[in-house]
Design a protein around this nucleic acid. Sequence first.
RNA 1: CGGGAUGUAGCGCAGCUUGGUAGCGCACUGCGUUUGGGACGCAGGUGUCGCAGGUUCGAAUCCUGUCAUCCCGACCA
Length: 602
Amino acid sequence: MKLSQMLFVTLRENPAEAEIPSHKLLLRAGYIRRIGSGIYAYLPFMWRVLQKVSQIVREEMNATGAQECLLPQLQPSELWKESGRWDTYTKAEGIMFALEDRQGRQLGLGPTHEEVITTIAKEMIQSYRQLPIHLYQIQTKFRDEIRPRFGLMRGREFIMKDGYSFHTSEESLKKTYQDMDQAYRNILTRCGLKFRAVEADSGAIGGSGSQEFMVLADAGEDEVLYTEDGKYAANVEKAISIPKKAKSSPFNSYEKRETPKCETIDKLCNFLGCSPSNIVKNVLYEAIFDNGKTVLILVSIRGDQDVNEVKLQNELTKLAHNYQAKALLTLTVPDETAQKKWASKALPLGYIAPDLADDYIEKQKDIEPQFLRFVDHTAVDLKDFVTGANETNYHILGANWGKECNLPKLMVDLRKAKAGDISAHDPNQKLKTARGIEVGHIFQLGTKYSEAMGATYTNEQGEEKPFVMGCYGIGVSRLAQSAVEQSYDKDGIIFPVAIAPYHAIVVVPNISDTEQMAVAEKLYNELNSQGIETLFDDRDERAGVKFKDSELIGIPFRITTGRSLKDGKVEVFKRATKESQDININEVVSIIKNWVETAIKS
RNA sequence: CGGGAUGUAGCGCAGCUUGGUAGCGCACUGCGUUUGGGACGCAGGUGUCGCAGGUUCGAAUCCUGUCAUCCCGACCA
């Protein structure tokens, strides 16, 4: 492609809308253009990158025996009502774009395709003889993200590969799950990315086992905890660890003491001269379930620990049926305005105890009249602890469970693991932390959707059984941007050869020099005919502009037909290392071909 | 949704406090010089000042409302 004929516009300044390096660079280099919040146009360079990533994904998926198809984006609400996800996905903090057609039918724009695929399986797969089967598609997804961010990283419209597998047994599912684990590792390796596979929470999609693939980058939205022996890595949401031991309490007799202006753990420790691990901290949460019921929650945890809200959500989801609900809609720490809606009197904030009286909750329809009380394991073991007195400016010291304070019945793990904790698998290993971008996620769904939607097959014994399912996603557009986030320098993008929009670029410093042009044209044609995807910068620009542009857009190899022509050579420059060398004109094509092939193979 | 900010030329911004001619840099067009690291000179084009209402002789500027975008939290590939 000749640059003079391309839509090629680069920006010298950073657009104000961009925050992280990859977003700035993709905008500046003319790969993407923002059309609306979280909505981007993929310009010609970007589209080539996305097609290359898609092709790698496709090859690795096909190699496992999965079959490609294309499912509808416009999905009838009935399917989602059958699976029970219509309300959670469209109401409150839901992420599905929902619309109504002229006949008044309700439709959603597909944020994911479990419902559609399960319907197909239900209709087309009748016998165990047809199983296992794995279908996937590469397609645009729509999600009404609460806050779109970072360009393609969190868009409202994005490209994703999603695959769904159907099995007769857990063993068969596990086999495909393992195949996907390997396929995903292959994909990310071929794309030239540094990544880590981590244990994950399966979240709203549900199911048992789940693993995320994280591209490591400081701008990542997720925190990964891992051990250096390589035996453990997990998303912080899921991570487990052994907390440090609590310090022994300096308060060996019970007393209620005045503690003015000690509404935070820090201030209280300073005032009393004790360790945060001597304190039982009580955190108030407000949960809203899908039937409109509001439940107030009190979590008691050791003062030096934090609550893992994902773990709390999972506990609440388990208890939803106690409130005649199916799903949890929101979980928040109620602010002042939220408290006013249900509090019968001012709460002793900062001085709450695990046994805060239920009469703080005003009797109202749709509000559970009692606190749901959880205690984390770290708080259960404490002796002679400090906690609130349920009275502003007073704490109790030297308290013990069963004596001055009742131990909540629900004892669960709600602790957030953190860097520095001792690993659960080996006491000699400590957890370390890294930031990552989640580009892939694989789930063992089990029978959640097939049961809900009555999708069954007949087994060898002639019995009707629900399908055992798995689902596997890769954010194609997110992956492409994460490659930039992981690989750039002050001059621009450094694309891995396998997913760069072009392999090489031929630069003519001076287009009015006929020899420079002739050699460049010849090399450009030869390279392309040898399968090296090559750009030709034949624009009427100064050499400096062309060099800067080629580095900004991140083409791996650059050939300049300039001053070395007098020796029968051209200058060849490697973007990643910035090394340059002069190579004979008649050798350059085969040398570059070799470089490209070597880079793509590894 | 809660907290913070911003809307002025294609992009980045100034002007607003103290109301009166809409400005700078980059980009763009033409001519000339320059020609291997985002050149220089001269000339030129470019705006519903986010939108609506109000105050005023007069509003980018003051007031009210509204919409959009971005940043910090919950959501996710």
